[in-house]
């Protein structure tokens, strides 16, 4: 079951790139930050596995919205929307 629009989420404050070779699609600037699910975009093979030619199970991909000033105090935008895979999201928080 996928997360409905409006679900409050927090991106995991995890830094796998500090532990060894990885390929991740979650930008540094949203790690540990709170946002809100915009919508479920579909399920896609996990790029973290595809990059290493491993079997890649499908994962739910969400559009998640953040308040730009929560990420950058001097932000000039009003809304920032990013594709984030489910395994990077903590619900509620």
């Amino acid at each position: 079951m996928s997360l409905p629009p409006g679900t409050p989420v927090r991106v995991k404050d995890d830094w796998p790139e500090a532990r060894g070779p990885v390929h991740i699609r979650t930008p540094h600037y949203v790690r540990g930050r709170r946002g809100e699910v915009v919508r479920h975009l579909g399920d896609f093979p996990n790029p973290e596995d595809l990059a290493f030619a491993r079997p890649a199970p499908e994962r739910a991909l969400y559009h998640v919205a953040f308040r730009p000033t929560d990420l950058f105090p001097d932000a000039t935008g009003d809304d920032l929307v990013i594709e984030i895979f489910e395994h990077w999201l903590e619900v509620g928080a």
């Binding site: 935008g77 009003d78 809304d79 920032l80 929307v81 594709e83 984030i84």
Partner: peptide, 12 residues
């Protein structure tokens, strides 16, 4: 005007 930035990070 509301400015929404979309960071294209994955499969779309």
């Amino acid at each position: 005007t509301k400015v929404t930035v979309v960071d294209s990070t994955a499969d779309y």
